[in-house]
Amino acid sequence: MKKYFWLFIMVGMISGLSSCTPDEKQENEVVIGFSQLGNESTWRERNTASIKEAAKKANYKLLFANGQQKQSKQIKDIRSFIASRVDVIVLSPIVETGWENVLTEARDAGIPVILNDRDIQIEDTSLYQTLVGTDSTAQGRKAGDFLKKKFEGTSEQIQIVEITGTPGSSSTENRSLGFRDSLNMEKRFEIVESQNADYMLSKGKQAMEKLYQQKQLTNVDVIFSHNDDMTLGIVEFLETTSIKPGKDVTIVSVDAQQEAIHLLKAGKINCTVECNPNTGPKLMSTITHLLNGGKLEPCYYLQEQVFSEFSNLSAIPERGY
């Protein structure tokens, strides 16, 4: 009898251990590993929230990892997802290059990878399935198109300072490319300085202060900022000087977050090009389509618009970010 008593105890302990594994994948449960590059801006925070909300609505389990603006951390996180045998990996890459090895490991493990927001430069494009995000080249082009309309009929030379985002990221490279492409045939537009501010408010403010101290803003007509957070820092600094933002210097930004719309309505910036952060729903429908054996397009871009001094500003709805 004593022998059977201890047998019952052992069975109970084993059953108890097996029930204490909440992270264990349930049968038919879809698990997504999401490597976000960081939380450098309000836009990024909204992008993360959009994906978390959409995953919950789709009844998918989401394992989230913050890359803290470091590619090495993102690579480590992706390897952790591979070890966890997730069904799909979603990657928001901090930079364009250096992903071949870890994405090969994901493919060898049979785990598909989908890019979110930013693109990568890679020879073997079969290492990822598709990109869901925004067209950063078109965003740069729209910024340039606004300037052509703003200065239509002006024959004088227009000097431009460009404040860029993270070096080596597809959004930075492509916004610069699109902006130049738009203005390429307009010889009166000249980019006289390009400074990096890593998509951060504080660095945008620092970049503008440095240019001001070096007296490089004296004859500048336009500031093109690659995102609204940097623009907020730019306006914040200019308001400590005699230069009136939006009046003495035309300011064009990208993102169209709520604070930028407030600045636009106040006449402190002149244009903000939308970069839609709400990739979550499209990501989840794309993942569902993929897991059901569907064929994917090379990329899926969200719809976006431009808000400027030429817009009906009273008709702009709350942005939600």
Rank of each mutant, 00 (worst) to 15 (best):
302 L>S: 08
250 T>I: 15
61 K>A: 14
179 F>L: 09
179 F>A: 06
105 E>W: 02
43 W>S: 09
103 L>E: 07
287 I>S: 05
175 R>Q: 04
266 A>F: 04
256 A>V: 04
1 M>T: 03
1 M>F: 07
103 L>V: 07
195 Q>T: 05
184 N>Q: 13
11 V>G: 06
277 P>L: 01
167 P>Y: 08
52 K>D: 01
220 V>R: 08
107 R>I: 00
246 G>C: 12
176 S>Y: 02
63 L>C: 06
134 T>D: 05
293 G>V: 00
118 R>S: 11
187 K>H: 14
208 M>G: 00
115 L>V: 10
53 E>A: 11
230 M>F: 00
276 N>S: 05
274 E>Q: 15
154 T>P: 02
33 G>R: 01
135 D>P: 13
104 T>H: 03
149 K>N: 07
218 T>K: 15
168 G>R: 10
163 I>P: 00
217 L>A: 10
77 D>G: 12
18 S>R: 12
145 D>A: 13
233 G>V: 11
293 G>C: 13
51 I>E: 11
319 R>A: 00
195 Q>Y: 01
217 L>Q: 03
211 L>W: 13
291 L>R: 07
37 L>K: 09
111 I>L: 04
176 S>F: 01
190 E>T: 15
234 I>Y: 07
113 V>D: 05
94 I>M: 08
6 W>Q: 10
291 L>Q: 00
261 I>S: 15
162 E>R: 04
64 F>E: 09
306 V>A: 02
270 N>C: 00
223 I>E: 04
41 S>G: 12
36 Q>D: 06
269 I>W: 05
244 K>P: 12
94 I>A: 04
132 V>E: 06
114 I>P: 11
77 D>T: 11
38 G>V: 06
167 P>D: 05
313 L>N: 10
99 W>R: 03
95 V>G: 08
65 A>P: 03
174 N>V: 09
7 L>E: 04
287 I>N: 02
106 A>N: 01
289 H>L: 05
144 G>L: 04
280 G>C: 15
182 S>I: 02
146 F>Y: 15
2 K>H: 09
273 V>D: 08
105 E>N: 03
36 Q>I: 11
290 L>I: 06
47 N>M: 12
191 I>D: 11
164 T>K: 10
211 L>A: 03
13 M>S: 03
26 Q>Y: 05
119 D>E: 08
150 K>R: 11
85 R>S: 14
224 F>T: 02
294 G>Y: 07
301 Y>L: 13
135 D>G: 03
36 Q>C: 12
285 S>H: 12
11 V>H: 04
267 G>C: 13
218 T>F: 10
200 M>H: 13
197 A>T: 07
69 Q>M: 12
90 V>A: 10
160 I>G: 06
202 S>N: 14
48 T>S: 09
102 V>A: 14
213 Q>C: 04
13 M>D: 02
221 D>R: 02
119 D>Q: 12
177 L>H: 10
